[in-house]
Design a binder for these strands. Structure first.
Lengths: 190, 190
DNA sequence: CTCTTTGGTATAATAAAATATATAATATGA
DNA sequence: TCATATTATATATTTTATTATACCAAAGAG
């Protein structure tokens, strides 16, 4: 569960441009109409859509706000449908592996999902992730105890916990049955 | 064009400023050092940290890149630990109780988690979300059939599916037992 | 106490983003 | 086909983000 390489070295201007075009066309708004609506000149919009601009934060905000989408969406890329099946996952529990994590959708960089197995009585210490990372854990089967910042939280089946992942945290299975977990790691969260 | 803030409510400038300061201080880098490192003037950094700036995309990118964090993280807000327990679940949606969705972390962020219950034989049609939305579904118990864009996908326990949420999609429980689901809605995804 | 670092201010100069306007090119529809 | 709306280009102008420089005050470190 490492956090590296979530950064795509890519022209952010192109991203904004492509996304702006997609959303704008998708809603059937002309550049001129949008320009007038959000108070940005048409030329500026054209240059942004072509990826030839270096827009100001205020302009970026106006566009996102005018299209009624989060500002971060304007900086993101698209993808398609894909499925992660349990039977296709990595190896199941081997007796010496206390904790196993299976990445579900590897191609996704800003939101990663994992399926995790924690042996009865087992515990696992996770390194601190990059600052700004948010972690969501859901217990799909069994029980889990989470330690974050010295505090301990006990979760039962179908419970979820959310915490900032930029600190040390420990997972413990206090029960005598296998714990099956679901992780969401979000690299762009509020 | 006037000079006032056009983004009064969710002052993005303040966000960037606060986040920049946090990450910078967290890493023990002085403004001057960071300024020199990423090729941005000290004054610019100061004004950005104070939320008094309207930075250019290139400057935003240099900062994010220099701190080695995603650009979107620079535009986000923080939060703390919180837990959503099954027994505390709020019920949402359900005209006929065939499908129930419980929001897990009702807060101001771009990643939403839901716990869902779909009755045996039940089906639920979800309206299309905003463009750019990504949806992740994991079957925590039972079975699920998902229809997206005319295609049908069958999921069993612990399987996950990912798809763009900006289209109509239908959930069906083809089995005779209750299906318990886990939803991740991401408003800022690839 | 000095010496140094750091955050912050003031000002002038520069680079460039954004606008306004006109016009051509390209589609789109009747 | 003509007519019209939209996209794109060109130029000149305004606005402003950014830089460079010097300076000040506070906080540590020696």
């Amino acid at each position: 569960m490492s956090t590296e390489n979530f950064w795509q070295e890519e022209d952010v201007g192109k991203r904004i441009g492509a996304n702006l075009r997609q959303f704008r066309v998708n809603r059937g708004i002309s550049m001129e109409a949008l320009a007038k609506q959000i108070g940005v000149s048409k030329l500026t919009l054209i240059k942004i859509e072509h990826g030839e601009a270096n827009p100001t934060l205020s302009v970026i905000w106006k566009i996102a706000n005018g299209l009624n989408i989060p500002i971060t969406t304007l900086l993101s890329i698209e993808s398609e449908v894909s499925i992660a099946r349990k039977k296709d996952g990595l190896k199941l529990i081997s007796s010496d592996d206390v904790f196993i994590a299976e990445p579900l959708f590897r191609s996704h960089n800003l939101t990663e999902l994992y399926r995790g197995y924690l042996q009865p009585g087992g515990e696992y210490v996770s390194e601190a992730h990059q600052p700004g990372v948010m972690e969501f854990i859901t217990v799909m089967s069994g029980q889990l105890t989470v330690e974050v910042d010295g505090d301990t939280y006990h979760l039962e089946e179908y419970d979820s916990i959310r915490f900032k992942g930029d600190r040390l945290h420990k997972y413990v299975n206090p029960a005598s049955s296998l714990t099956i977990l679901h992780f969401v790691i979000s690299y762009h969260n509020f």
